[in-house]
Design a protein around this nucleic acid. Structure first.
Length: 268
DNA sequence: CGTGGGACCTGAACGC
DNA sequence: TGCGTTCAGGTCCCAC
């Protein structure tokens, strides 16, 4: 599911409901979601602590619990929302955090890929993640990208290079930049590199403005769908006309990810 | 260093 | 209706 725009939308939607609240307990029906930490340990660490902030870094969500952190990754089908009940409002809730207003922050995840991790700081995210794309300058983007011979799509999906771009927004930004997904990064001119950086920022910001893409599982914390999927130009449009030029969109596989591109707008 | 395959999981969509 | 296959917004680990 969630790429940067979806995660950002979740964080913004949840913030007013959790920041300032005190944790009173935690619940799970599938302990593996806690990534090896026993529920009792999570509960003991968080109980009585006040939520000082909720932040996004790449596709990760960090809940600052005033001295320790709960780091949440939604992976493919994770959702977060407030519920009146610990077990949440759907059959796929596997973790929830009880707050002092009697409500629960529920983590629902049908595929069980998502994780909720207790940790003492967010430093490990800084070690593994590249910079945030939305605030990345042209010069810094050019610096990051130089030298690599990898396919450009594989490169921009690498979270250690740039944090937050996923399969949808990779395809969308490459179309808008007019770059074939298999183009080796070191074959991109300065101008096209700059264009790609600009289009990545643009598709991610548009995605946030449309509150994320609800293709299948993703929902905003209020339960409603995002609108971003209504604005895709190539993603999921195999055999349909490219929204820029009308040519039939093709589907291929790049780095084991389904990849949509326009053979006319994006020549190798 | 880089890539390909598989693992982790479940549900939806589609073909027969 | 039911069964089998394929695909899915992500990441990690291992072999080559």
């Amino acid at each position: 599911m969630p790429e940067l725009p979806e995660v950002e939308t979740v964080v913004r939607g949840l913030r007013p409901d959790v920041v300032g609240r005190t944790v009173t307990g935690a619940w799970t029906d599938w302990p593996r979601v806690l990534d090896g930490t026993p529920l009792a340990e999570v509960t003991a660490a968080l109980k009585g602590r006040t939520v000082a902030g909720l932040v996004r870094r790449g596709k990760y969500i960090g809940m600052d619990c005033d001295g320790c952190y709960l780091v949440i990754h939604l992976r493919m089908t994770g959702r977060l929302y407030m519920s009146e009940r610990p077990e949440g409002d759907d059959r796929w809730v596997h973790f929830s955090l009880a707050l002092d207003d009697g409500r629960h922050m529920a983590f629902s995840d049908s595929r069980k890929f998502g994780r909720v991790t207790l940790c003492s700081s967010l430093d490990f995210l800084e070690e593994k993640l590249g910079p945030e794309p939305l605030t990345l300058s042209d010069a810094d983007f050019a610096n990051i990208i130089q030298g690599s011979s990898r396919a450009v799509k594989t490169f921009i999906l690498d979270q250690s290079k740039i944090a937050g771009v996923g399969n949808i927004y990779a395809d969308e930004s490459l179309l808008r930049a007019g770059i074939h997904p298999l183009t080796p990064v070191n074959k991109l001119s300065k101008a096209r590199t700059r264009k790609l950086g600009a289009e990545i920022r643009r598709v991610l910001q548009d995605g946030i403005d449309h509150e994320g893409a609800s293709i299948s599982w993703y929902r905003k914390p209020d339960g409603n769908k995002g609108e971003s999927q209504q604005h895709f130009l190539v993603y999921g449009r195999t055999d349909l006309p490219c929204k820029l030029c009308g040519t039939a969109v093709q589907r291929t596989v790049v780095g084991q990810r389904g990849t949509h591109f326009c053979p006319k707008c994006q020549r190798l």
